[in-house]
Amino acid sequence: MQASDNRVEEHLAVLRRNYIGNLPAKLAEFDQQHGLLQTATDMSVILANLRGLAHKLAGSAGTFGCPEVSSAARNYEWILREAALEPDCSVNIDIIHSGHQALKHAVAQTLLLNTNEQCRKQ
């Protein structure tokens, strides 16, 4: 049982490294939607898209052992949920931007930690 558990954990570790490696691509999806906010005539659709992305990332990042990314995504989701309750003209873009920036920072930190871990193993 011990040996098979170790193999599973090794497999999960590989999946985790792959997941972290794909975080920039996930972030790019946020960047694309966030960019549309600047010129959108109907922000509700973009806010809903961003919120869906944040919700999914919060769940998957936590499951793959990236608590900082999960926490930042959950916070961003909350910001977007609150923003969606406001009429378009009252949406505070700065707060949404801060959530987006915090998420980017969390991803950068996680990538750096992962890189450092890989370097130490070599």
């Binding site: 599973v8 499951t63 793959f64």
Partner: peptide
Amino acid sequence: DEPDIQTIARIALETV
């Protein structure tokens, strides 16, 4: 619907 979660769930439920 999330492929990453599908992958890890398959390990969790089938393998483990």
